[in-house]
Design a binder for these strands. Structure first.
Lengths: 127, 127
DNA sequence: TGCAGGTGCTAGGTAAATCAAGCACTTGCA
DNA sequence: TGCAAGTGCTTGATTTACCTAGCACCTGCA
């Protein structure tokens, strides 16, 4: 069902249309570049449909945009990674550079630290 | 017709399944968290279908993963390994529950892991 | 030996994404 | 005045994403 991200779709569409115009491309021209049909591109720009990932990628390439900028508009990325210090546990689990075993080891250490600090509760030297 | 990014889909699926197992969740449990049906989650994990953006986002949230790590697997983001100061580092630094010493210890372990995985191109020596 | 409840997967339907054809409008040109 | 060619948009059909219902398998328990 069409969820509440409708306005997000509109933002995404507006962004794509803006970038298309900046690149001086007609709907058909850009649709050809992105290898999608022009009516569909039209609908995406008007926020009628949510494009799939690979369509989004094609669009980014057709417009010479970084995937990030488009994904940001699509609401998939929040501005700047590392700005929001998310839960360390989540960050560790999501780190593509760590093996599963490494993640588990790191998480074990992390949890033991947290358990420690909870036990000591209000004791404050620094931090 | 499923296009040539089929293997990419399989990679994405494998990654999701791996993360689900690391989080100790059954298909149904995670499907509930992500607000999608369990058969569909199963198909995503097996690379049968390409999930839409908002499903992908739900999955990332259900697994407490950053959107980036999932998008990278989905082939939407290319990330040079070792370039970005990962959000894991930022998260550790920003964690109010860890003391300074604990942060340093955790970061040291983390960095050694990352260095390991970067050096991993056929060499067997261990430090 | 059987049933209750857990696991993942299959089958078949509905809604949404996507395309090919074509409409309404504007512009340049003879 | 008219036609060719451009613009974006609508329509109707196909493909794919996604769901509900249910199957086959394994485990613990009485």
């Amino acid at each position: 069902m069409p969820t509440a991200h409708n306005s997000q779709l509109k933002l995404l569409g507006d962004y794509i249309r803006l970038q298309r115009r900046l690149a001086n491309l007609s709907l058909r021209q850009m649709a050809e570049l992105a290898e999608i049909s022009n009516p569909y591109l039209s609908q995406i720009e008007r926020g009628v449909h949510e494009p799939s990932m690979h369509v989004l990628r094609s669009i980014a390439r057709a417009l010479n945009l970084s995937a990030e900028s488009i994904l940001e508009q699509a609401g998939l990325l929040e501005r700047d990674p590392g700005q929001v210090p998310t839960d360390a546990e989540a960050a560790i689990r999501g780190d593509p550079r760590l093996s599963e075993a490494q993640k588990q080891a790191l998480l074990a250490v992390y949890r033991s630290y947290v358990a420690d600090s909870l036990a000591e509760d209000g004791e404050g030297s620094s931090g």
